[in-house]
Design a protein around this nucleic acid. Sequence first.
DNA 1: GCCGTACTACGAGAGCTATCGTACAAGCCG
DNA 2: CGGCTTGTACGATAGCTCTCGTAGTACGGC
Lengths: 121, 121
Amino acid sequence: MTAPVSVPAAGSRALAHPAPEEIRLEGVLHALSDPLRLGIVRELAVGSDELACSDFDVPVSKSTTTHHFRVLREAGVIRQVYRGTAKMNGLRRDDLDALFPGLLDSLLEAAARQEERLAGA
Amino acid sequence: MTAPVSVPAAGSRALAHPAPEEIRLEGVLHALSDPLRLGIVRELAVGSDELACSDFDVPVSKSTTTHHFRVLREAGVIRQVYRGTAKMNGLRRDDLDALFPGLLDSLLEAAARQEERLAGA
DNA sequence: GCCGTACTACGAGAGCTATCGTACAAGCCG
DNA sequence: CGGCTTGTACGATAGCTCTCGTAGTACGGC
């Protein structure tokens, strides 16, 4: 047992990510049930893997931003890695698609559709 | 404006449900992010529309069960109607599919897949 | 070596959530 | 009617979550 928690690269500053086996659907849904985090994930889905935390235009303080990114990472939704002083963020699309095929796309489309609808289309 | 909150049938004991326009993706995800509620929805998805609250075998007290069903109803995930002393529950599959095509099925499949995986398949 | 940038840690407060037990209401059945 | 079944309301509690500000760490550039 003792799930392989994707051991951090030895020497450097590394961040704990859940192994794919540890990712729980409930956790993913919970992470995405916050509008702010859902927005972050949507931005990440269209952009590249190379978005720093500060590239997002969230209407909360820096500490709160850190908090939300951590929730997303700990739920297994995003991957984070340091690159100098910046922390680059990327969707764990590969892992999520392997665990829950089609789910991420459905969620992203649902979010897009809702935004369109609420915009008074 | 003033969204039509699907006015309850006049005289009888009726329950407030959100109108389709009021259903929010975040709310749905939040409702489903609880293992208990996700389980209820999964049972509802395979069974008929005719399941009473007491037909579910949840490991919590009656009051807590009431609470969870209310969360699901207020998020727009289920429909509830009184039938004698019982309260019958049904998925709002039609409304959900119209708002978020494919999402419900993706979620149900993801849940099934995870259960299979965790059962040590 | 020093400063600025980017992010984290910690502590705190407000608010929501899950849970319970007890007490109660509504409807069926004998 | 009286009792049983089913679910609700209310109050309470513990725990989580979102939010912030302040203080601190890690890294890159001058």
